[in-house]
Design a protein around this nucleic acid. Sequence first.
DNA 1: CCTCTTTCCGACAACGTGTTGATTATTGTA
DNA 2: TACAATAATCAACACGTTGTCGGAAAGAGG
Lengths: 215, 215
Amino acid sequence: MSSQKIDRRVKYTKMVLRQSLLELMKSSPIEKITVKNICELADINRGTFYSHYSNPRALLEQIENDLFNDLKATLDRYLTDADLTSGSYEMIIEIIKCIEMNSDICKIILGEHGDHDYLKRIVNLAYEKFRESWIVNMRVRDDKLTEYFFNFISSGSIGVIQLWIQSGMVDPPEILASMIDKINSQGLKMFFDNKNENVTETLLKRENKCYNQAD
Amino acid sequence: MSSQKIDRRVKYTKMVLRQSLLELMKSSPIEKITVKNICELADINRGTFYSHYSNPRALLEQIENDLFNDLKATLDRYLTDADLTSGSYEMIIEIIKCIEMNSDICKIILGEHGDHDYLKRIVNLAYEKFRESWIVNMRVRDDKLTEYFFNFISSGSIGVIQLWIQSGMVDPPEILASMIDKINSQGLKMFFDNKNENVTETLLKRENKCYNQAD
DNA sequence: CCTCTTTCCGACAACGTGTTGATTATTGTA
DNA sequence: TACAATAATCAACACGTTGTCGGAAAGAGG
């Protein structure tokens, strides 16, 4: 209803501004891109830019949020409880396929000059669900060690996905997914069996020591 | 010999400029820090800045390189072949202790507004040695899967160390080291035993497919 | 004490920013 | 088709940062 009444001129302006920013981001980071740069490439008056966005970063955030919502919607369709308790395999595949489908934008946004924390946002979107599910269903402890462990897994996954993107997205997603999934499940076994109590105890002792220290 | 003849004035100027930049980086990223900002805080004439550095980034790189060389020197003292074949535990401890010793600078450089790739440089410095050692001594394959695996491990380690820094460097380094080390060794077993031939084969098949594709 | 070096100071043109008001062009609709 | 509303254009503005001068002042080191 309401979204149909958008003026064609506005639609066009926003479109070329987006395209131009993405084009510029292929060769330089967002910090070095000026409003003037974007407008010259888009052949849009500089004043017109300011009537839509306050600065280049705001424009980028618009693009990122739109893509993020797309990915989120697709993920939500696949993230059932069954998948969560069985393993991360399906989900990793799904995330990677989402990225593959939007490869033109993703190569830029998640690439060399892209936002370093953006992929983190996407992957953590998934891992937060995982974490909750595991803590409830598998009676995993919700302590500092667990936090470190989840951080390791998600950071590792992000790194691998980034490498995959940087090498042109040609390798099959199954390879990444199977590797991440194996480290996931192996890691879980490794960290939350009864042989590791001592590690947590050491952690707690050190913490108490810190609290008790003077100054 | 030659390094002793540095003018006291130069020494002072560089020192206050460094301190000022680091102070400013506590509250804002390097991109938003101007030469004027630094010089006003340092109470140094703006022109004088340009006679030492070309821009704020160049000053930051100086600071980073100096610290990097310190860390590298310390690491080299501990990185013997014995350590490399036995495991990553000692080395992780050593890296973390290095960071702890320079915590004032590291908290800023490796922290929220710091260089995201800098910690990567440090950790990879170590992992490259590891990789070589493993490939030679343990007859690990040097293929794409291995590259992905090493990337997972180093990214994961970086993530954990970052979390440790962000939460104030209070947790004992042993916790991190033991976790990273376990995932390391478990992961190695998992990936390079004879049960995983099929994964590599799949990867190779896909690659050939890509090369053969017409476009 | 004297010379050499560094820093300071004021000035400069160049550039991007964000905003303004007046003008022109395009749109959706009556 | 004609009209009113809306959007884009254009020129101009004050402002702040940049990088670079040449000359004056201050400090270093021998």
